[in-house]
Design a protein around this nucleic acid. Structure first.
Lengths: 197, 197, 197, 197
DNA sequence: GATGAATGAGCATTCATTCAT
DNA sequence: CATGAATGAATGCTCATTCAT
């Protein structure tokens, strides 16, 4: 019985993976708006109905797509000390983003910038992650929130710059400039804050 | 007959202006994808057929839109020396954009980031403007293009940071930090380039 | 030119008529819920898009269907004296309803009963028509409204009875019983009111 | 083994009851068409497959629904003499319906009027109940059917009148007028029929 | 008996573009 | 040049029913 359930779950998961993999590839190739649910289900080799078993809407698949890309970074960062954690979180995120393909990042940043539901949640999540590291160093809630928001904003700004340049510029070049600048700001502020305590 | 022709031409031009003005307003309010040709023609008070007399497609109206909105800034910048021109162009553009309000900027950046048609054209336009100033200082085409793309990318990154923080952070604070940083980079590179010539 | 416009208008009207005629027939045969927009446009021999030129939604076509059935009754009733007008309005409406087919009446009554947008408006219209006749006989606004609402309610009740019986009973048999009863009530009240003046 | 079977049977019955109770509530709240099999099984806390073990189709659950809701009224009425039984059945049904509140009555009448599956079954049920009482007084099948259909039609007409007036008129006022009228007709016909025998 | 993932035809509606007038 | 009715493929999404487990 347990065995049977496992098979069923495995098959279901396989379908879900085929859907998200097809979505990833298609969004990567054409961008979110130009990919229809039919495109995805055809590419995944499942029925249209199956899509809506695994995802409530077309929008939701993007959300999963991003979790899929960023999910394990926080886990690793959690084991580091706060400053390292923030650096790692920003750099590892950036690297993952760079590896996951321009079109997906565009789609996702576009949502973040426009304040669309998913983007908003992702940013809130990111801010909370950084905030949690900052609070370990003694910031109070309001301070940590303000600093985290600034760090994340700058970080997304850097991603945008890379996104905008659309392949015409070496991504890591712009990105490292920007990150270096951001992290220096962070480091200074952290020291400053630490001293004033 | 000549009289009639003049009336015809005037009316035709009036139609074209009404179309692009309506397109500008609607795209800024709702984003390119959410604006239909019907929306534009209804707002402009012309027939759908008239739209296709003046523009071959919905996409084509966008190229015109960018010129229509930012051309006066370029005209002023054109009279300055290259470095001044770039600074003025970036600052005046930013101000024009910021004056439109957060909602519109979000819509518009979202498009720029996603590589959607309107955003793409705006960036191409911006890069070309900056590139033209750089080439006045002796850069060759490829160099000018690369530097211009970097400047514009950083500039859009700053806008994104402001956008992302969504009121939780003083907008001009982030923006000026970022612009200062960007422009210093530009200034250094310009000097550097000037020296190596 | 006027000639050409006429031709265009005629053609457009012909399409609209083909659509409503197809809708009438199909709703008559299968009921509103079982008829899709595709069914209608296929039967009418027009494109799906054409449907939405003439009607904002599937619901709207039902509204037109009923206007189509009842439109000219009020015009005739307006030329009669109040009591005659009410009798004529109720009887002529009933007769038109009987002639227009059970399924359509079912669909339409169903809307009236459920308080759906269209039904409510139709009832409000009916009440106002009867009220206007009653006010000619000296009722004040509140009285006329209450009496009109009662008359129309009873009238719709009679229609429902016919509808419910679903062809298993001679429609005019039930209807005339009911109407007789309703009109006696009305006649008495009118006399009563006339006396108390 | 017998024990296990009992448990199985009990669970099966419990499932069936949970399904029909959920169906009753949902259909009364939203109407048959707006309730999906998923809605029912979710509300009942059973699987979709379980639904199709107990009912061959979504339509089939409706027949059961009518019995489920009104069967206790019929049981009581069965012990009365025919005329009393009919009066009691109509009044008790009306009261049960009116107690559910205007919104539900609208939904439910709307279905009855439109000939939708639930309404159709309810009317068929009502007609058969009244018919069975009439046949006790000596009507033959065809006569009883015709009279029962008329009684039920008038009865539903009264409900509709109340529904239509939507609070602008005292509900029980219209209702009692109508019921009195209907029942007088019935009483007369019954006497008439009784005499001619 | 029970499960719930899977199916796929079906739905109402939109929209860029064309073309007869 | 101008009109706007017409097109029809495409969209995101629903849902009664089936069936392998």
């Amino acid at each position: 019985m347990a065995y049977n359930n496992k098979n069923r779950e495995e098959q279901s998961l396989a379908h879900k993976n085929r859907i998200i993999e097809a979505a990833r590839r298609l969004v990567h190739e054409k961008g979110y708006d130009s990919v229809s649910v039919s495109d995805i289900t055809e590419a995944a080799g499942v029925s249209k109905g199956a899509f809506y078993i695994h995802y409530k809407s077309k929008e939701e698949v993007i959300s999963d797509l991003v979790n899929f890309v960023f999910e394990d970074i926080k886990t690793k960062a959690d084991e580091m000390d706060p400053y390292e954690a923030i650096c790692y979180f920003l750099k590892a995120s950036s690297e993952k983003i760079l590896r996951s393909g321009l079109k997906i990042v565009q789609t996702w940043l576009s949502e973040a910038v426009s304040g669309a539901i998913y983007g908003k949640n992702k940013i809130r999540y990111d801010v909370n992650v950084v905030k949690s590291y900052l609070m370990k160093t003694g910031y109070d809630d309001a301070q940590a929130n303000a600093v985290a928001l600034k760090i994340i904003s700058l970080h997304y700004g850097a991603l945008t710059s890379w996104c905008i340049s659309d392949g015409g510029v070496e991504p890591l070049d712009i990105l490292s400039d920007m990150l270096e600048h951001n992290l220096k700001v962070l480091k200074d502020r952290m020291k400053e804050m630490a001293m004033s305590e």
